[in-house]
């Protein structure tokens, strides 16, 4: 899911930086307004948490393991706007310090994982949960469905970014300049793995973590770290 440098052309990279700028500005404005002063470090802690979720390997049938992205979980725990900032910060740290995800593709990666996945996951979770109590089983199912669906929507978004490259950047001789595969290849390739494997990993991690928090500390799901309040009004 982390798009490296060189896969997307300058037009796509520039476009998604331009799209993300107002989203980041809105996120920082909303979070600054709604986050209580005593919760200021929570953004950084949430970002570090988003970063390390990917370190946890989940066993899957057949003896393999995989890891979740954790963006929907961050959104459920922090709220969508704080979740957007937390995942953005985690992606920036990964790209700048560890070369994981491109520097020119930070806008595109943030659009997929810090915006599309976070917001789609959060609102799907809220929609399915309805007005059910915070400890209800419905919320566990909602978290699982939100995790699975949002990851696949984000994967589809990344696939479209890859797939439009041959349309945007090709020489007169037919030579591709960036990702060489069109939508007919990029979409099935990206969605195949995510629908079959990675989406389920995301769903299991998101649902089980919500289930454990319901059991041991339901308040953490209720308050959303103090950054939720604007969404509960």
């Amino acid at each position: 899911m982390h798009i490296p440098d060189g896969y997307l052309g300058p037009v796509t990279c520039g476009f998604f930086y331009a799209v993300m700028l107002p989203i980041w500005a809105a996120a920082s404005k909303i979070v600054k307004r709604t986050l209580q002063a005593r919760h200021a470090p929570l953004l950084a802690i949430g970002a570090a948490f988003s970063f390390v979720i990917m370190m946890f390997n989940l066993p899957i049938p057949g003896g393999s393991t995989g890891h979740a992205v954790g963006a929907v979980l961050a959104a459920i725990l922090l709220g969508p706007w704080a979740g957007c900032i937390a995942v953005t910060v985690a992606l920036v740290v990964q790209a700048l310090l560890f070369g994981d995800g491109g520097i020119t593709a930070i806008g595109a990666n943030c659009f997929n994982m810090a915006f599309v996945e976070v917001f789609a996951g959060y609102y799907l979770y809220r929609l399915i949960s309805g007005s059910s109590p915070v400890t209800s089983g419905r919320r566990v199912i909602a978290a699982g469905i939100a995790g699975y669906t949002a990851l696949n929507i984000a994967a589809l978004s990344a696939a479209v970014m890859f797939g439009i490259q041959p349309l945007l950047h090709k020489t007169a001789g037919g030579q591709s300049l960036y990702c060489p595969y069109g939508l007919n290849v990029a979409i099935p390739m990206m969605l195949g793995g995510h629908l079959a494997v990675f989406g389920w990993i995301e769903a299991i991690v998101t649902a089980l973590v919500v289930k454990y928090l319901q059991k041991h500390d339901p308040l953490l799901l209720e308050t959303g770290g103090g950054a939720h309040d604007e969404n509960h009004g």
Binding site: R38, H39, P41, L42, I45, G46, A48, F49, V52, I53, F56, N57, L58, P59, G70, L73, L77, I204, V205, L208, V209, K211, Y212, L213, H216, D217, L220, G225
Partner: peptide, 21 residues
Amino acid sequence: GQRIVAWNIAYLWARSYQLNE
């Protein structure tokens, strides 16, 4: 194994939240 991993992530978040204060 999946339950152990999920418990660890949930525990990490609970500790993170306490740490905030």
